[in-house]
Each structure stands twice: as C-alpha cells, then as structure tokens.
C-alpha cells in the first residue's frame, strides 16, 4: 500500500514537466526515504535523478519498497487535469497494474479521480558516487535557461569554462560565434539573484546544447541552479526542490578525439 498526499500539487506537475523532455518512460521507486527516480535518455548520454523526500509530503505511507513503471507523457496528461491549487493524492497497491491520482480543489468542492496504467520497464540502475568537483557554479535558473536558449540558436555545443574571473559559456556555428561571461555577483537584493563561482581548479568542458536546453525544463522548480564540473565526470545540473529534494541532470562531456 502506497499513499502520498501533496498539498502543493502543482509541484508534481512541475517535476514531470521537468523530466519528460529527456525521458519517455521511467521507473519510480517508493521507499521510506521518499519518492525517487533514476533514468537515462534513450541514447544513454544523459541521466536524471529525482528525489522527493518523504518528510516533504503532507502524508506519506509506503508499507514496502515498490517500483512503478510510468510513461511520463501519460502522467503529464493526467496531472494536467489537476488545478494549480489542487491537493494531489497518489495511490498504488502492491501487484496492481495501475496507480491512481486524486485531485481535490482547495475548497473541497471538486474531487477528481484518475487511474493510470503502469508499464513494464527494464531500467538500468547506475551507482553515482559522491565526488569532489573542480568547479561549482550557482546562478539564477532563469539566467542559465536564457543562456542555453540563446546559444542554442547559434551552435550545437557549449563550452563551459570556469576561471577565477567567472564562468564563460561559448558556442560556434555556421553564422558565427558567441561568448557569454557571468561574473561572481553576490551584491544583489535577493539571494536567488546571486551568481557564485567556487573554483578549486580551472575547468573547460564541451556539452551538447540540446541536452542542456532539455534540462532547463526544470527551471520552474527552483530559482537557482547549481552546475558542478569536473574533467573526469559528467556535469551535474541540479535544481533543488524546496524542503523536498532535487532534480539532478547528469551529462557526459564531449571528448576530443
């Protein structure tokens, strides 16, 4: 028996919208720790890891660990039927091939029930070790989204370089080239507008903009994004979900031949 209640139901919509561009089908895992997912895109060069901690839910019951294969577009179709202020309750049963969503309006005058079919998914689970990164950049998530979108109209790849001067995003394409430098800036009215660059070693890595642009679908989840870079590791683009957990995207850098 599994029952999760989230008063801020719109959060679940945002989570699904954040990852469905990258992954079509995914296996959601439920345990005492929380509601989580790990999935790779179809070409296996990017990975998404989601965690919504049990403490973040208004009600959380999970009698035993359970994995549920879901199609994210179908999930989005169901969740789109919920109002933005609705309370969402998600229910599952051991051995059942369906799950259910219940949407309650804040005034309790409308209650909707949706049942969704589960899928069999052969998912490959990877162990992601804790790592020390050469550089960690924190910046407003909207700024990062803007940069990826702008550069994506010029080139296919972005070179992210971190020096003590700041972080530089560069691209090159048929029509020309572009460089955007963001300097550390903590002199702002609100902490979410800050850009901070934590550098242990300078680092410069190349990534496919198509994936970076897909990661920015998570922008509505968080005001800030954290980009962790190391030459030996996939980049981690993390959107923290207040009081609940995170969505982390991993992308392998392109390598010189």
């Amino acid at each position: 028996m599994l029952e999760l209640r989230l008063v801020q139901g719109s959060l679940l919509k945002k989570v699904v919208d954040a990852i469905r561009d990258l992954v079509n089908d995914a296996s959601f895992d439920c345990s005492a720790t929380g509601f989580s997912l790990q999935a790779m895109d179809s070409s296996h060069v990017a990975l998404v890891a989601l965690l919504l901690r049990s403490e973040g839910f208004d009600h959380y019951r999970c009698d035993r660990n359970i994995s549920m294969g879901m199609n994210l577009n179908n999930m989005a179709k169901m969740l789109r039927c919920a109002g933005n202020d609705d309370i969402i309750t998600f229910k599952g049963d051991d051995g059942s091939d369906t799950v259910s969503f219940m949407f309650e309006s804040p005034t309790q005058d409308k209650i909707s029930d949706f049942e969704m079919k589960l899928m069999d998914i052969d998912s490959e689970r990877l162990g992601i070790p804790e790592a020390k990164y050469q550089a960690i950049v924190r910046m407003p998530s909207t700024e990062f989204a803007r940069i990826c979108k702008d550069l994506g109209s010029i080139g296919d790849t972005v070179v992210i370089s971190v020096t003590k001067e700041g972080v530089k995003f560069s691209t090159r394409g048929d029509i020309g080239s572009a460089n955007i430098v963001c300097r550390q800036n903590t002199d702002v009215d609100k902490p979410e507008q800050a850009t901070t660059v934590e550098m242990n070693d300078p680092v410069s890595l190349t990534f496919a903009l198509r994936y970076m642009n897909s990661f920015t679908k998570a922008t509505p989840l968080s005001n800030q994004v954290t980009i962790s870079l190391s030459s030996e590791l996939p980049v981690v683009v993390e959107y923290k979900i207040a009081e609940m957990g995170y969505v982390r995207f991993y992308l392998a850098p392109k390598i010189e031949e």
């Binding site: 790779m40 070409s43 296996h44 060069v45 990017a46 990975l47 490959e124 689970r125 990877l126 162990g127 992601i128 070790p129 790849t157 190349t206 496919a208 590791l233 996939p234 991993y250 392998a252 850098p253 392109k254 390598i255 010189e256 031949e257």
Partner: peptide
C-alpha cells in the same frame, strides 16, 4: 563531431 561517451563510461551498473 566530437564523440560523446555514455553514462556507463563513468558510472557503474548496480
């Protein structure tokens, strides 16, 4: 084009 390794190049399967 620059080659791009897969995730399993970096992270081991469970």
């Amino acid at each position: 084009a620059m080659p791009q390794p897969r995730m399993t190049f970096y992270f081991r399967r469970f």
